[in-house]
């Protein structure tokens, strides 16, 4: 069998609805045949799309479209739910626009559901194909939630607990004020710390964090 470039369809285990803080999770579940999710980087678009896939049978999650050709959309309308991340990466290409247009039609006609995420509201996307733009504008819209620092703090503490290690609020606050305030990066930092604490068998304290992260 000739092997096409394999797509990474894996979901993060912790990208679930119960781990998502904010109102967008409920809105996503009430959504339509077509749903467009948008929000700033790190506001949880990927998290929500993957949560939908965890939650639904027959769902598929696609990302990194740019590394592929538009035939990745072929036959997708046979899935119950299709989630496509970061559509803005390919939308400046007319062929991708047309491919998405056909996919949207096919999904609606087959009574399936499509979730697409992008970094801007539809009006702000550069979509030359009017047929596609009007469809995107007709989609249900969910804006993902930007967390404030207290919420980010709560997420850090909670995630650490879910992963089976304890992290005090003071440590979380330290991480937040000294490393990044971007949720994606924060989760990466957390994973890094988890690995180190497992390997070294030490508790996560501020000095430990300082040493591991070199700050």
């Amino acid at each position: 069998m000739n092997k096409q470039l394999a797509l990474d369809l894996k979901l993060r285990d912790d990208a679930t609805f119960s781990n998502y803080l904010g109102g967008a999770a409920t809105k996503v579940l009430q959504a339509d045949a077509w749903t467009y999710l948008w929000g700033k980087p790190g506001s949880g678009k990927t998290h929500l799309l993957q949560a939908i896939c965890h939650h639904t049978e027959g769902a598929i999650y696609l990302s990194g479209l740019k590394q592929h050709s538009k035939d990745v959309f072929e036959g997708l309308e046979c899935m119950q739910v299709v989630c496509i991340d970061d559509i803005h990466e390919v939308l400046d290409d007319a062929d991708w626009q047309e491919a998405l247009f056909h996919l949207m039609n096919a999904i609606k006609d087959m009574d399936k559901r499509l979730y697409i995420s992008g970094n801007k509201p539809v009006r702000g996307l550069r979509v030359g194909l009017a047929d596609l733009k009007s469809r995107l504008l007709a989609a249900a819209v969910v804006e993902t939630d930007v967390l404030d620092d207290e919420q980010k703090l709560a997420v850090l503490v909670q995630r650490a607990e879910n992963r089976g290690f304890r992290m005090g609020e003071d440590v979380a606050r330290f991480i937040l004020s000294r490393t990044s305030r971007d949720m994606r990066k924060l989760i990466d930092v957390l994973q890094h710390l988890e690995l180190e604490t497992l390997q070294q068998g030490k508790r996560i304290t501020i000095p430990f964090v300082k040493r591991i992260l070199n700050i």
Binding site: E57, G75, C78, M79
Partner: peptide, 29 residues
Amino acid sequence: FSTWIRPLQAESESGVMKLLAPNRYIRDQ
């Protein structure tokens, strides 16, 4: 089961079975 197996279709002729997947994701998986 419902994501990857149910969408498959089967055609068979004299001992040879051809399984058909509706798209490449299902086939690869």
